[in-house]
């Protein structure tokens, strides 16, 4: 049993409910024990840092201090939300890198009777623990309904693979973790060139035109590559691409229909869990057609897979072996 201190983050209870529900659904199969950090608070997202530095880091550090107190058979804090993951990791890293920051933050924490020593807990993202602790072999062994024929665009967004203070990810630009996880479910993974591009973040709120353009690029690229569905690991990405896709279409006079769901939702249906229990139906851009492609609630129709072409012309360089944090090296054939 892999045990983690669990920091759900605010969106898991709201806009990213599908993420939370699907995570709970696959948890038994993955033998994960999640112990929620008692009385955790908001990480401040990308907003508090703009206002006032020391309070922003103190807000984050309260969670770290609570987690460190609660260490009980594990020192790993698992966060499924990208922004939460980054903020927790960043506070831990900068408090150590800049001792002056650490001192000030601890001065503030002391007012609440708390203290945090940087490095006391490990902060990791859900995808990282699934790949490196639980392992793709275990995931494969749980698949009862392979996602054969479903063309998936893996979309990681920004804040998990970057800046990656603890160097846990295979790459900043084109990390392979989410691709490999989707492949383990039997999906056809497209080489999505924008897999770590930005969804617009809070610009949907404060500068919608900037955000619509970023959303358009992502949805257009996924459609151009022939994806049936996008999967994400970030509540903000899901929210922007799902809830604002309609507005984006209105803004540009386009007609994109690109469903985006959490990777845990596809894991759940591959594990044989009912789509509703996996949080399907909560998305605003319906994933009905995508589900139909894997024989759920609709007749099966297979897109022809292009035959592998014989190499001609000049040879391509071999891909660089990707190294996972667990030390496992993956060489693509």
């Amino acid at each position: 049993m892999n045990k983690y201190l669990f920091y759900p983050g605010c969106s898991m209870e709201g806009s990213a409910r599908a993420y939370y529900e699907s995570l709970k659904a696959i948890q038994p199969a993955l033998t994960m024990e999640l112990e929620e950090i008692e009385d955790w608070n908001c990480c401040g997202a990308t907003e508090y840092l703009s206002i006032n530095l020391i309070p922003a880091y103190s807000l984050i550090a309260r969670n770290l201090a609570l987690a460190a107190q609660q260490k009980n058979g594990t020192d790993t804090v698992m966060a499924p939300c990208s922004a939460c993951y980054l903020n927790l990791e960043k506070a831990d890293y900068y408090m150590a890198e800049r001792p002056a920051l650490g001192e000030k933050v601890n001065e503030a924490l002391a007012a609440g009777g708390l203290h945090y020593e940087p490095g006391s807990v490990q902060i990791r993202h859900l995808v990282d623990v699934i790949i490196n602790d639980i392992g793709l072999e275990t995931v494969k062994s749980k698949v009862v309904r392979p996602l054969t024929g479903l063309r998936v665009a893996p979309y990681l967004g920004c804040m998990v693979p970057r800046p990656d203070f603890a160097k846990r990810w295979s790459d900043h630009e084109h990390p392979s973790e989410l691709d490999d996880l989707m492949k383990a479910l039997g999906a056809e993974v497209i080489d999505f060139p924008m897999k770590t591009s930005c969804c617009g973040g809070h610009m949907t709120q404060i500068g919608p035109e900037t955000a619509y353009e970023l959303i358009r690029r992502l949805v257009a690229a996924a459609e151009e590559q022939g994806a049936d569905i996008m999967v994400t690991m970030c509540p903000m990405c899901q929210m922007n691409l799902d809830a604002y896709q309609g507005e984006t279409n209105r803004h540009f006079g386009t007609n994109y229909h690109m469903p985006i769901v959490f990777f845990t939702q596809l894991m759940a249906v591959a594990f044989g869990i009912d789509p509703k229990q996996a949080g399907f139906g909560l998305e605003l851009v319906s994933a009905k057609d995508a589900l139909a492609r894997i024989g759920l609630k609709a007749p099966e129709e297979q897109k022809p897979t292009p035959a592998r072409k014989k190499p001609e012309g000049l040879p391509m360089p071999k891909p660089l072996p990707k190294k996972y944090a667990s030390g496992q090296t993956v060489v693509e054939e």
Binding site: D171, H172, E173, H174, D191, M316, P317, K318, P319, L320
Partner: peptide, 13 residues
């Protein structure tokens, strides 16, 4: 220098 390391320049991809 192994150009595959600069993944944003796409060498090998």
């Amino acid at each position: 220098f192994d150009a595959r390391r600069v993944t944003n320049y796409g060498y090998g991809r």
